[in-house]
């Protein structure tokens, strides 16, 4: 990790520690929790798209898998919550490997197609066979560890953001390692990468599995926070939403995942005052973002910052 990233991460950590102390409004903290959950999912997709050059349209599938598996294991089988979260992540990453091996051995965007299908299959399974079917189920045990059960919004805020910061640390370390350079090399030229001895298929599979771990972890945390699940939150729309966060935040910078999550999560809340035309304004803002900030917000800000410093 570079010095600059370590400082930003440290500031973020301080901010996270003090935010629930200063703000007691549960509405704002709840939005903060959802930003964290979305950021976690978006982070995995940023590494996948920006560093391994692959698109996934099925992150909602892993997110839903994490949520449902962890919820069912703890509710119906009485497993301790941390264990059921762990098993949910394990199952999701296993499925990611099975999905990735055939589609990543081929050149081109087969992974996008495979994940699109996978996401839809998961959505249909949750609808048909999930507890409660389309209307979902509740009474999911809240998150508890070492006999302590989390109850307040502030506690969940801490829980989610601890994982966001851990995932961010792992991601930054990875990106700034030699493996990170190899990943970016794959993005620029697969032909040259293999000729330099980089096993590109294996690396791409690992990045994809990492993205599935982040997404299923986010899903499991979500399940134990809201304690109620229904399939509607795990459709293709959520995958597209995550894709939007990644693109608007900037795929070439991992911080873009957090920036994108903040924007896409907050925007509908701000636009609530516009009543019927909110979706219109939402669409307009996103279109303008894509048109005028192709690289995404974070890379754009870095560009401006570097210009200011040079002057």
């Amino acid at each position: 990790m570079s010095k600059g990233n370590a400082i930003v991460l440290f500031i973020l950590g301080i901010f996270i520690i003090f935010l629930p102390q200063i703000i007691t409004d549960n509405y704002i903290l709840t939005i903060g929790i959802f930003i964290g959950i979305n950021a976690l999912v978006a982070m995995g997709l940023t590494i996948l798209m920006g560093y391994a050059g692959q698109i996934s349209l099925g992150q909602a599938g892993f997110y839903g898998l994490g949520a449902y598996v962890s919820a069912i294991l703890s509710l119906k089988f009485g497993l301790p919550v941390p264990l059921s979260v762990f098993i949910a992540i394990f199952i999701a990453s296993l499925i990611a490997v099975i999905l990735a091996i055939p589609s990543l051995r081929l050149k081109g965007h087969y992974l996008a197609v495979a994940t699109l299908g996978f996401g839809e299959i998961i959505h249909i399974i949750l609808n048909e066979w999930g507890p409660g079917g389309p209307s979902g189920f509740g009474d999911i045990p809240p998150f508890s560890i070492f006999g302590y059960t989390l109850s307040s919004t502030g506690e969940y805020f801490y829980l989610i953001w601890i994982f966001v910061i851990l995932a961010m640390t792992f991601s930054l370390n990875l990106i700034h390692s030699l493996t990170g350079k190899a990943l970016r090399a794959i993005h620029d030229s697969e032909l040259a990468s293999v000729s330099l001895g980089i096993n590109i298929t294996k690396l791409k599979i690992k990045v994809f599995v990492l993205s599935s771990i982040y997404a299923s972890l986010a899903g499991a945390l979500y399940a134990h926070y809201v304690t109620f699940l229904s399939p509607s939150g795990f459709s293709l729309f959520y995958s597209i939403l995550i894709l939007m966060m990644v693109v608007i935040g900037g795929i070439t910078n991992i911080w873009g995942a957090i920036a994108g999550a903040i924007i896409i999560t907050i925007l509908p809340e701000i636009l609530r005052g516009f009543k019927e035309i909110d979706i219109l304004i939402y669409g307009l803002i996103l279109t303008l973002c894509i048109l005028f900030m192709r690289k995404g917000i974070v890379p754009l800000f870095i560009e401006i910052w570097e210009k200011v410093i040079k002057k």
């Binding site: 493996t179 970016r184 090399a185 993005h187 980089i198």
Partner: peptide, 29 residues
């Protein structure tokens, strides 16, 4: 087939990868 979006010295680092790689998990921690 250079890595155009990498800096010049990072291109060389990509070449050094094959003899000096550390593994995915270890790189992350």
């Amino acid at each position: 087939e250079i890595f155009g979006n990498l800096k010049v010295f990072e291109n060389i680092l990509a070449g050094l990868y094959v003899r000096n790689q550390k593994g995915f998990l270890k790189s992350g921690i």
